[in-house]
């Protein structure tokens, strides 16, 4: 057991980051379930993180009320963005959410309450393994149930063919907004937790690169079921670190992995078709 704890101590930060990456990937996944691409989730996570950090650091909130408040605020913002952006499709929606993300980053950079370019530091260390993975497990359960429910089917119908979904009596707008709200919640929780085990939060966490990273977690992991984005998040967080010894070539390998996975497994590594083939082979 001591070997394991030793291992954990050495890599704790990485393991926690992997867990949060899985959460963030799921936040992108939920909007993808309803056929919408959101590139604003890094910003939503930042909103959750900043809110929670301010509450715990400056107002001495305990962890969970702060996290939930952060999640709620992020969810409200997500809905506020989602409603006007609802009429947009595909790449236009993605760009709108990206623009939103930049506004958030710029705001964080300039407002006093967010500490400007340096962000917030000295955030109390309230989050650890059980908090992060507890939430992740609960979220996984949530998605498990969601995928097998009337709501989940409505999402899938909207994703496949919005017009046909309408013809089935599905209130498309209602469900799209719901998806955004859930995404905001998840991202907010992820951001809040991250703030409490990295002890800092900066505006850079809401930037374009981060937003795009989260998307890659989801896409590389595969979007046919919730397990995909989780796997993608974990893999794409751990793998680059595992290759860290290669220093300069790390970017190269990251890039090569991304290209290779997209070209050879365009539906992600969790594509059921891939695994079915392998089982058949045996």
């Amino acid at each position: 057991m001591s070997a394991l704890t030793g291992l954990y101590a050495g890599y704790s930060s990485l393991i926690l980051l992997a867990g949060v990456a899985a959460l963030l990937a799921l936040s992108v996944y939920v909007t993808l379930m309803a056929g919408q691409l959101s590139l604003g989730n890094a910003a939503l996570a930042a909103i959750g993180g900043y809110s929670a950090a301010i509450l715990t650091r400056d107002h001495h909130f305990p962890l969970w009320p702060a996290v939930l408040s952060g999640a709620a605020i992020a969810a409200v913002v997500a809905v506020a963005i989602g409603i006007p952006a609802l009429r947009l499709r595909g790449i236009y929606l993605a760009l709108a959410t990206l623009a939103f993300g930049e506004v958030v980053r710029a705001a964080a950079l300039n407002l006093k309450i967010t500490g400007g370019a340096l962000g917030l530091i000295n955030i109390p260390p309230l989050a650890g393994f059980w908090q992060v993975y507890g939430v992740l497990a609960a979220t996984a359960f949530f998605f498990y149930r969601l995928e097998r429910s009337r709501v989940g089917r409505a999402f899938a119908a909207i994703r496949e063919d919005e017009a046909a979904a309408r013809a089935m009596g599905i209130k498309v707008t209602h469900y799209k907004v719901l998806a955004f709200a859930i995404a905001g919640c998840l991202a907010g929780v992820a951001g809040a937790l991250t703030a409490h085990f990295t002890y800092v939060i900066t505006p850079a966490q809401a930037n374009f690169t981060e937003a795009v990273n989260i998307l890659t977690f989801a896409v590389v992991g595969g979007t046919s079921t919730f397990v995909g984005p989780m796997a993608g998040g974990v893999l794409l967080t751990i793998l680059p670190e595992a290759l860290r010894g290669l220093r300069e070539d790390r970017l190269l390998l990251d890039g090569a992995i991304l290209m290779a996975v997209t070209i050879y497994c365009p539906n992600g590594i969790s594509d059921p078709r891939l695994w079915r083939w392998r089982r058949a082979r045996r």
């Binding site: 691409l37 890659t216 896409v219 190269l252 990251d254 890039g255 991304l258 365009p266």
Partner: peptide, 21 residues
């Protein structure tokens, strides 16, 4: 392979990383 636009987006990111590196 008739992959969707998302796949192209991701692969372009990968290519960018390779180029920068």
């Amino acid at each position: 392979r008739r992959a969707g636009p998302l796949a192209s987006l991701i692969t372009s990111i990968g290519a960018a990383l390779i180029l920068v590196s």
